[in-house]
Computed example of a mutant assay.
Amino acid sequence: MSNNNTGKVVVITGASSGLGEATARHLAALGASVVLGARRKDRLDTLVSEITAAGGKAVAYTTDITQRSEVEALIQGAVDSFGRVDVLINNAGLMSIAPMSETKVDEWDRMIDINIKGLLYGVAAALPRFEAQNSGHFINVASIAGVKVFSPGGTVYSGTKFAVRAISDGLRHEVGGAIRTTVISPGAVDTELKHGSSHPASSENLNEFYKMAIPAESVARAIAFAIEQPADVDISEILLRPTVQDF
Results as ranks from 00 to 15, higher is better:
G118A: 09
Y61I: 12
N115M: 05
S143G: 10
G118V: 00
F138I: 05
P152K: 09
T160P: 00
Q133L: 01
Q133H: 03
E131I: 08
H137G: 08
A73E: 07
K104A: 12
A92M: 11
M100R: 03
V123W: 01
R180I: 02
G77V: 02
S151V: 11
R84D: 06
A145R: 05
D64W: 12
V147P: 01
G170E: 13
T66L: 14
N91R: 13
A126K: 03
I167C: 09
V164G: 03
P152C: 13
E174T: 09
R129M: 03
G176H: 14
G159A: 14
Q67A: 14
N115C: 04
L74Y: 13
T62A: 09
V156N: 02
V85M: 09
S135T: 07
T103H: 10
R165L: 10
S81R: 15
S81G: 03
G118W: 00
G146H: 06
M111L: 05
A178Q: 09
V156P: 00
A60G: 03
A145H: 14
A142I: 02
T155D: 08
K104V: 04
L94E: 11
T103P: 04
Q76A: 15
V175F: 01
L171G: 03
S168M: 14
Q76D: 15
E174S: 14
Y157W: 08
T66A: 13
S69N: 15
I144T: 11
G146P: 00
I112F: 12
L120T: 04
W108T: 15
V79W: 06
V105R: 10
E131F: 02
E102A: 13
F130V: 03
I179G: 04
A142S: 12
F138G: 04
E70R: 12
F82L: 07
A60T: 01
T160R: 01
D64Y: 12
V164I: 12
N134F: 05
N140F: 06
D113H: 08
V105W: 11
F162L: 04
S158F: 05
T103A: 12
M95E: 01
V147K: 08
T62C: 06
F150G: 13
S158T: 03
S101A: 11
V183G: 02
Y121A: 03
I144W: 09
D109S: 10
K148T: 14
V71L: 11
N134D: 14
F138E: 06
T182M: 02
V164S: 06
H173A: 03
L127G: 09
I65E: 06
V147S: 05
I114N: 07
T63I: 11
D169H: 07
A163C: 07
A126T: 02
E72Q: 07
E107R: 14
D106E: 10
D106C: 07
R129G: 04
R180E: 04
I114P: 00
S143Y: 13
K104D: 07
A126Y: 00
Q67V: 15
G122R: 01
A145W: 15
G118L: 02
L120Q: 06
G153C: 02
L94G: 05
I65N: 05
T103M: 12
G177T: 02
V141K: 06
Q133M: 02
G77T: 04
A73G: 12
T66I: 15
Q133V: 00
T182L: 03
P128Y: 03
N90L: 05
V85H: 13
I75K: 15
G176Y: 10
V164K: 14
G136C: 07
D113K: 11
E72D: 10
D86G: 11
L88E: 12
G176L: 15
T103W: 13
